[in-house]
Amino acid sequence: MTTATCIRKTVVVATLRSRDLDGRADWVEKELPDLIDTAKNASLLRTLGITVDAPASASRPGEAAADPR
């Protein structure tokens, strides 16, 4: 059995804004839920350039942190 991993929408938005991708950040704010399932949205996150670290590095269990590359 696998554990679902989620990332907070605010982390994704902040990462996009730090890259001056305000249009994409606005879209994420409008379209995605507060917790984004990284498995269900893996392709979208890759398209946005968001990579997800292991859950162990997250601030809370079950949440991943975005790599701000």
Results as ranks from 00 to 15, higher is better:
G49H: 09
S18L: 10
T47K: 12
A66S: 14
A54G: 03
T38V: 15
A54R: 07
A25H: 08
W27F: 13
S59M: 06
D26V: 01
C6E: 08
R60M: 12
A14F: 01
L35Q: 12
D22E: 12
E31F: 01
L21F: 03
E31L: 02
R19V: 01
D37R: 03
G49Q: 11
I7M: 08
V52E: 10
I50M: 15
A39D: 15
K40L: 13
D67T: 13
P55D: 13
L48K: 09
I7P: 06
V11W: 12
K40M: 09
L44V: 12
A25M: 08
E31R: 10
L32M: 15
R8W: 11
A39Q: 11
D53V: 09
C6R: 10
R46K: 14
I36Q: 02
A64P: 05
A65N: 04
I7G: 01
W27C: 05
I7H: 02
K9W: 05
S18D: 14
V52K: 09
D20F: 02
T38Y: 06
L32T: 02
E31P: 00
D67A: 05
S43C: 06
R69D: 12
R24L: 14
R17Y: 03
P55I: 05
R46A: 15
G62D: 06
R24G: 00
T38D: 04
A4F: 00
L45A: 08
E63C: 04
S59T: 10
L21K: 14
D26I: 01
R19K: 15
A56N: 04
A64W: 03
A58V: 01
L32S: 02
T3H: 08
C6M: 07
P33T: 04
W27N: 06
C6H: 15
M1T: 07
E29Y: 02
I50T: 06
L21I: 01
A65G: 02
T10D: 15
R17N: 11
P55Y: 00
V12G: 04
P33S: 12
D20V: 01
R69M: 04
S59V: 03
V52Y: 05
A54C: 06
P55A: 12
S59Y: 04
T3E: 14
P33Y: 08
R19A: 15
V12P: 07
E29Q: 08
K40V: 07
